[in-house]
């Protein structure tokens, strides 16, 4: 397999010269983006099926066997719907906002390692890039709400923006703890820092357990998922920031939300659950390719997202802000000092 790839690369180099590198990179990007879009489509089906089973009903089962063609049907339906641009809206920004929401959700994948050395760009400041890209997502939402020129969209965008920036702080402090433990911003190095031969005992979720919990809950809040989906609280503000969107504009916000969920699942696997590393470093486990461990961990985290949605009632806005500012930020600040102090002693084993 590796040899085949190398011969391919060599032939391409000889054939196309300087044009080869961009083309080869583009092929790699397609190899990453296509499965992500496929996963997004089937995550919507998985969500409806799992929610269905948890509520003792079958979920979608009409389109294709076991409802397997449902995402395809939904996609085609949305593609054939009219794109309505309200007359009072700011037209350019209204159209640009969904694109701005989707772009960072995809671009952040450039530095995510799927296996040892299996990343598109091996950059030193990987974590910083991820933080920058995930912060950009809020622009899509706030521009959508403002450009719609509709009261519900405007209120939804304000709520959502305040929520996202509040939880970004807790997320940032949790990331600093990971940096402390790993002493590197390169995501590949962060995973390698978790391999000590003890399997899952070496993963950072053990010394940083409170941060793992905070990071994941903040991730749920960042992606506007239940129980923190106040931005689309239908009882008070209709559909929030995407009230005025129809057809593909709406679909892009949907895609961005699900792509962000998968991204959060991937990042929590990489930073706390040992990425591509097997949980027990002995024979049957370490023979399975790292990619499968990574995908397994991501699936588990994604299942948690859906489980949350089926289990918890929606937060009230004041409860949401209290959790972010008065619980998570003090907790992460304290744990940051604890970890830093712990690292000064010989008791730090990671």
């Amino acid at each position: 397999m590796m040899e085949l790839l190398q011969t391919l690369e060599q032939t391409g180099q000889n054939l196309l010269g300087p044009l080869w590198l961009p083309l080869w990179t583009l092929i790699k990007i397609v190899v990453i983006v296509a499965p992500i879009m496929g996963s997004v489509a089937y995550l919507t089906l998985a969500e409806r099926k799992i929610l269905g089973f948890m509520q003792v009903r079958p979920g979608p089962n009409r389109v294709g066997y076991w409802g397997l063609l449902q995402p395809l049907a939904d996609g085609i339906k949305l593609l054939l719907k009219e794109i309505i641009i309200p007359s009072s809206a700011n037209k350019f920004l209204f159209v640009a906002a969904p694109v701005l929401a989707l772009m960072p959700a995809l671009a952040a994948w450039a530095v995510v390692p799927f296996g040892d050395g299996m990343e598109l760009a091996n950059v030193n400041a990987g974590l910083l890039y991820i933080l920058a890209m995930t912060s950009l997502g809020v622009y899509g939402i706030i521009i959508a709400g403002w450009a719609s020129n509709s009261k519900y969209a405007f209120l939804g965008a304000l709520r959502s923006a305040a929520q996202i920036i509040s939880y970004e702080l807790a997320m940032g402090f949790a990331l600093v703890c990971v940096l402390l433990a790993a002493q590197s911003m390169n995501l590949g190095d962060i995973v390698r820092g978790q391999s000590h031969g003890y399997g899952l005992l070496g993963w950072y979720f053990i010394p940083l357990f409170p941060m793992f919990v905070v990071y994941f809950i903040a991730g749920v809040a960042e992606t506007n998922r239940a129980p923190f989906d106040l931005a689309e609280d239908e009882a008070t503000i209709v559909a929030g920031f995407h009230t005025e969107y129809s057809g593909m504009g709406f679909a892009l916000f949907f895609l961005a939300e699900y792509a962000n969920m998968i991204l959060i699942a991937a990042l929590s696997s990489v930073m706390f659950l040992g990425g591509w590393l097997p949980p027990i470093n002995i024979a049957p486990f370490n023979m399975i390719p790292g990619l499968f461990w990574m995908l397994g961990k991501m699936s588990f985290m994604l299942f948690l997202f859906l489980w949350f949605r089926a289990t918890f009632p929606r937060y009230r806005y004041d409860q949401l802000m209290r959790l972010g500012w008065k619980v998570f930020i003090p907790l992460t600040l304290v744990w940051l000092v604890v970890v830093a102090a712990w690292m000064q002693t010989p008791l730090w084993l990671w």
Binding site: V99, L102, M103, L106, A110, V111, L120, A121, V123
Partner: peptide
């Protein structure tokens, strides 16, 4: 960082 830049452009195109 070149692949990163290319990825951002592809992300825009996908939108």
């Amino acid at each position: 960082y070149f692949p990163v830049l290319l990825f951002i452009i592809v992300g825009l195109a996908v939108g």
